[in-house]
Design a protein around this nucleic acid. Structure first.
Lengths: 186, 186
DNA sequence: GTCTATACAGCGATAGAC
DNA sequence: GTCTATCGCTGTATAGAC
């Protein structure tokens, strides 16, 4: 029981997320997670009784909720689908710090922890792809599903290549190309 | 000194590579590496005095050599550049087991071990991109550099998405789209 | 609730028998 | 050359003081 500051758990999530992004699931030690969140191990386990796995699941939920609200919902609901797609590209560039920040979901998908988080990983990408396909369809594009799959995958590849070459311009150029490919009249 | 079978080191590389692919650098324990290679720790350290890092560097060298011979060289030298690009797509599909196999270089790029292997990681992708741009240029395509960057990054993204959705068809569809985008007349 | 202390397992690496 | 035994360390997780 007990009345910890009601949002102690939520308050820690951004710090935890950043540690997972920077070090991966295996490399994110409880010492690092606690230090960055400003909590001792006791407090961490009080907020997340399931330990590291529960922390990661909560982080993935928070990431999914952010994308759902800021990106997927506009793609589905904005009466101007092209504007929603442009918004998606701008928000994506900002969220990933122009390619300097790793996508935790993509990194987990490649790791051997994939199975543990399979549902959330698959949901994140399926939702993104389907919301984008919806917007492209409403914008009158043919083969909206293929185009959406291609764009979602390119964003992940852009993050890989930008980090591999240590060159954030790679990601910026990709977003430019995507804007033309997705928003220019067919 | 001593005359270990001259290729003991080389013979172990494919097994070591597979363990690194499946478990990542951090997750590839010496126990796993030795078991899969059929060697005890003593033999492993005899072949790779630098330990796990030397094993990974040797694996990356072998991967780079394979791609250089099978993919980059034809892209640069084949008198029919479109045929070389088609060959690249076929070989890539086979190498990554139609998307069921992870790209070790891409996974390392996302991990926090990136810096340790930065030179080989960057070289792998830069060579691929430049060789493909060369072939596209010889095929008479405009904006060959952009097109090449986009294709190399899409392959990495395709591997991420195929694994995230646990759906190898994602990767197969991507290779089909790339063939049209790269080989069809402009 | 938050801390420190600790249990216990697994890691990379090394030493030394054979 | 290859093995087993072991070192020193770090990991997650838990117990218990406060």
């Amino acid at each position: 029981m007990s009345a910890s500051p009601p949002g102690a758990r939520e308050a820690a999530l951004p710090a935890l997320a950043e540690v997972f992004r920077e070090h991966g699931y295996a490399g994110a030690s409880l010492a690092l997670l606690g230090a960055r969140a400003g909590l001792g191990k006791g407090s961490l386990y009080h907020a997340f009784p399931g330990g590291k796995e529960e922390m990661a699941q909560a982080v993935l939920d928070a990431i999914g909720a952010w994308f759902a609200a800021e990106i997927y919902a506009p793609l589905r609901d904005d009466p101007d689908p092209r504007a929603a797609i442009r918004r998606m590209l701008v928000e994506t560039g900002a969220y990933f710090r122009s390619g300097r920040r790793v996508c935790l979901v993509g990194a987990l998908a490649l790791s051997d922890e994939r199975d543990r988080f399979a549902t959330r990983i698959a949901g994140y990408f399926a939702e993104w792809r389907d919301a984008l396909a919806d917007a492209l369809g409403r914008a009158g594009r043919a083969q909206a599903a293929d185009l959406a799959e291609d764009a979602v995958l390119a964003i992940q590849g852009g993050l890989v290549l930008a980090r591999a070459l240590d060159d954030a311009d790679v990601f910026a150029r990709l977003l430019d190309r995507l804007e033309r490919r997705l928003c220019d009249p067919p």
